[in-house]
Nucleic acid binder design. Structure first.
Length: 285
DNA sequence: AGGCACTGAGTTATCTGACG
DNA sequence: CGTCAGATAACTCAGTGCCT
């Protein structure tokens, strides 16, 4: 699995999502707050984000100003041939070490990365086998560049967040602890943070682009998918209770809303995948 | 028959915009 | 940063269908 999208325009994509592969996200221009897991990044041109796809992420975009970014999705398995060379540098370490990470590239470093992106684009545009292979090599080069940057002492990587963003960061930190709690409510957040319920709702949406409970439910449904994957024997009811839902009906409806398929249907799909996988393995031997 | 997953519809909580 | 009120979305209960 390898996908490269050069300088694509993001207009309206407040879609909170996760995926099973890794992502490299480079911000070219525009205005964007990026919410990844429990962190909010106020992106500036030259920012590069490394992401473990299982972490929920979503950009919060100003619809007036289109923003331009390049995105690379990849399955680390495709890099194996390059990583097993005797002199190989462990370029995947930054992805493994930090669940997600932002590099602020400026000046020479920014130019170098953009140069690599251009090279990748030219290889991609050839559209043949050689192009494909060189695209991958250029990407491996990019990973070396990233690895190198991660070794540099962090000259200030972080902008100073506004008070509002700090508060939202606090809300998110709190939610990280309690998002699976079945007693979670605005009342609880209000009592812990001493801010009015409507104000909490307002600044959260302002900064992240999603409502508070949308954030919570995205996290829960994401967790549900992981539970179904790792523990096929768990029933839908059991999973819904573990995630803090008081009613199966509620979980079922939200799951279908987000995943476009019922939880039971999702389990069945996973089962089919597993059987297919086994079958292919059997034929392989 | 009994358990489980899902849906319809009324109730309740959250969201959002206006205003102080 | 808070309050208020109307709009919207989530919660809950009751009921249905499917499977064993």
């Amino acid at each position: 699995m390898f996908e490269f999208n050069y300088r694509s325009i993001g207009m309206f994509e407040p879609i909170f999502h996760s995926h099973t592969f890794y992502e490299v996200y480079y911000f070219h221009e525009g205005k964007c707050n990026y919410l990844i897991g429990d962190q909010i990044y106020n992106l500036s041109p030259g920012d590069l984000i490394l992401m473990n796809g299982m972490t929920l992420h979503c950009p919060k975009v100003d619809p007036e100003i289109p923003y331009i970014r390049s995105i690379i999705h990849f399955d680390p398995a495709i890099l194996r041939p390059y990583l097993e060379l005797p002199q190989a540098v462990p370029v995947m370490r930054p992805f493994e070490q930090f669940k997600n990470y932002r590099l602020c590239l400026r000046g020479k470093e920014k130019e170098e990365l953009e140069q690599i992106l251009l090279v990748m684009l030219s290889h991609q545009q050839r559209g043949d086998k050689v192009g494909e292979s060189r695209l991958l090599l250029a990407f491996v080069d990019m990973l070396h560049f990233i690895y190198d940057q991660c070794l540099q002492p962090l000259g200030e990587q972080r902008e100073v967040p506004s008070d509002k963003e700090k508060t939202v960061q606090e809300i998110i930190a709190l939610l990280e602890d309690v998002y699976m709690d079945d007693e979670l409510s605005m009342e609880l957040l209000h009592s812990k943070l001493h801010l009015s319920k409507s104000y909490l709702a307002k600044i959260f949406k302002d900064v992240t682009g999603v409502t508070l409970f949308e954030y919570v439910y995205r996290k829960r449904i994401n967790e549900a998918k992981i539970l179904f994957l790792l523990h096929p024997s768990l029933s839908v009811t059991e999973v819904s209770f573990r995630l803090g839902f008081k009613h199966l009906a509620h979980f079922s409806r939200l799951f279908k809303q987000q995943v476009k398929i019922t939880p039971e249907g999702y389990k069945k799909e996973l089962k089919k995948d597993r059987q297919l996988h086994k079958q292919l393995e059997g034929e392989g031997n």
